[in-house]
Amino acid sequence: MVTIIDYKERQTEDGKTFFVLEAQGGIEMVQSQVTGKFYATAKKAFIPATFDEVTCKALIGTQMQGQIIKEECEPFEYVNKETSEVMMLSHRYVYAQDEPQIKRPQEPFTENLKANPNVFSKNGKHELEHA
C-alpha cells in the first residue's frame, strides 16, 4: 500500500507543464552502516499524472494498492539537499502495482462434479429413455 503525500509541478523538454504525485510506501527499519543502529524510513517515488493542480491537491492522503521498489538505471549525480553531498547513484525508486491475486477454490473443482450414468448410451446407439 502506498499513500499520496504531495504533488509537484514539472516541465517537459518542450516547456509544457504537468504534475507528478509523490507516493510514499510503508515504514521500513534500516540499519545504519556507520553506527549500526536502526532508523525508520519510507521509500518515495513520483508518479506522472494527467490531473490538474486542484485534483492533485485533493488526492493527498489517498492510499493505493502497490509498492515503491528499487529499479536499476543509468548512473547519475544526486545532490543531497540537506548536506550538499554529491553522490553517484545507479538506482531510483518507482511505483509498482501489486500483482493481482488469483483466488483458487479451496476444494478441487472436480469433487463437485458427479456423472449421471443415465445420459450415456448402453448399446452404442443414441436413444432417449422414456420414463
Rank of each mutant, 00 (worst) to 15 (best):
M1E: 10
V2Q: 01
V2A: 04
V2H: 06
V2N: 05
V2G: 03
T3A: 07
I4V: 11
I5Y: 05
Y7I: 01
K8L: 10
K8M: 06
R10L: 08
R10E: 11
Q11M: 14
T12R: 01
T12Q: 02
D14K: 11
K16W: 09
K16D: 15
K16H: 10
T17M: 04
T17K: 11
F19S: 01
F19D: 02
F19Q: 00
L21P: 06
G25L: 02
G26F: 06
I27C: 02
I27P: 01
E28A: 00
Q31R: 15
Q31K: 14
S32P: 03
G36P: 05
Y39Q: 00
A40L: 14
K44P: 00
K44C: 07
A45D: 03
A45V: 03
F46I: 02
I47Y: 03
A49C: 12
A49L: 03
T50P: 06
T50H: 13
T50Q: 12
F51D: 11
V54M: 10
T55H: 10
L59Q: 08
G61V: 03
G61S: 02
Q63S: 12
M64E: 08
M64N: 09
Q65N: 15
Q65K: 15
Q67I: 06
I68P: 00
K70V: 04
E71P: 02
E72R: 12
E72A: 15
C73L: 05
F76P: 02
E77W: 02
Y78R: 09
Y78L: 08
V79E: 13
V79S: 03
V79Q: 08
K81L: 02
T83Y: 02
S84E: 15
E85F: 01
E85C: 00
E85Q: 12
M87Q: 11
L89W: 07
L89N: 09
Y93F: 15
Y93I: 04
V94K: 04
Y95G: 00
A96E: 15
A96F: 09
A96M: 13
Q97R: 11
D98C: 09
D98E: 13
E99M: 11
P100E: 10
K103P: 00
Q106A: 12
E107R: 15
F109P: 09
F109S: 14
E111G: 07
N112H: 15
K114G: 06
K114T: 14
N116M: 00
N116C: 04
P117E: 11
P117W: 03
F120H: 09
F120V: 13
S121W: 04
S121H: 07
K122V: 14
G124D: 04
K125A: 08
E127Q: 11
E127T: 09
E129G: 15
A131S: 12
